[in-house]
Structures are given as structure tokens and as C-alpha cells.
Amino acid sequence: MNPKPRTQFAIQSRLLHWLMAVMILAMLFIGVAMVSSLADYRWLVALHRPLGIAILILAIIRLVNRKLTKLPPFPPTMSPLERRIASSSEKLLYALMIALPLIGWGMLSAGHYPIVMFGAVHLPPILPAHPLLFAILRAAHTVLAYLLFATILAHVGAVLFHTLIVRDRILDRMALWPIRRPKTPAPDANPAE
């Protein structure tokens, strides 16, 4: 449709990115605080469940949106290897955003817990109650949550490196406000994927 290559992600993509960034970071901190806390455990768990399902819904919407929208090209400062790493880490982030809530939901199902959202609203189980299945999913939930946190740190680190040290204005692609560049550099031939 648009003959000029994008300089930014689509507006709904950018909104989803920043909204989910806040939700997922909050979720990771709630998760790690709740499993050590005695006094705050109950309300943190009560918040963790519906927030996780909200992230699952948004992650699915985001995945569909990702397939339907055109992406801005990588900046020319990114080497082919770095582009491959960026694309793989993006896939990993999508996989974890969807897998973690699903594993949480499946884990509560296997543990014979009611999956309470709020008030009388609850979700059906998606797995049969089974002790060992619960134990495996419970462990996987923790390991993958740490992996998600580490992947997010790597993502933030890479963007900060580009912004502060390569200084290629990579953050403009995801800025919530429209960016007008005074002088357009030669657009890179390869789009993001």
C-alpha cells in the first residue's frame, strides 16, 4: 500500500509494545515477590492470575498484528548477525509471552485449583488434575519467567547500546510519538524479516 518504507512500527504495534512492557515487567516483579512473601502472598496471587490472562490475550492480538503489519527496516548500522539475533530474540519473547500465561493456567488446572479471575468469574481448567504434571509445569513456570526477565534485559541492553553508543536512533522506530527525521539516511535494502 505505502510505497515508502516505514520509519516506525504501526501505531497499534507501538501502543501494544509499551503497554505490554509495563504489564510484563509488573507481572515479573509480582511473581517473584509473591513466591517469597507471606504477608502479601494472597493479594499478589489474586492480581497475578487476571493480569496473566490479560497478557495472554494481548500477546495473541499482538502476534496477529505482527503478521498483518509491515515493519520498518532494521537500521543500516545492524550487521547481518545482529539482525539474526534480534529476530530470534523477538521470536523468543513472543513465545514466552504466550507460553507463560498458558503454563500458569495449565499448572493451576493440573493442581486442581479454581482459576479465579475476579468475583465469581473464573476460567475452566485446560488440563486434567495430576500431581506430577502440576509439579513439572510449576517448575517450568519459574524457569521460563527467569528466562523472560533475562531476555527482556538483553533486549533493553541492546536498544540502549544502539541509542547511546551506536547512536543510530533505533528507538525512534518504537517511539509512541511520530518522528520526523530532518534528513533521511539511505534506507536499508532488507526489511526486518
Binding site: S37, R42, P131, R138
Partner: peptide
């Protein structure tokens, strides 16, 4: 729940006991 601090603590401790024994 009421404001009894034992309730959240019971919930938390039961959860650990459950997770350990299920595995």
C-alpha cells in the same frame, strides 16, 4: 478474607507444601 494476617500466610505456606509434595 478478613484482615487476619494468618490467612495470607496459611495460603502461602500451604502452596509450598503442595508444590513440594506433588513433585
Amino acid at each position: 478474607v478478613s484482615d487476619d494476617p494468618l490467612l495470607s500466610a496459611r495460603s502461602a505456606a500451604y502452596s509450598v507444601s503442595f508444590t513440594r509434595r506433588e513433585g
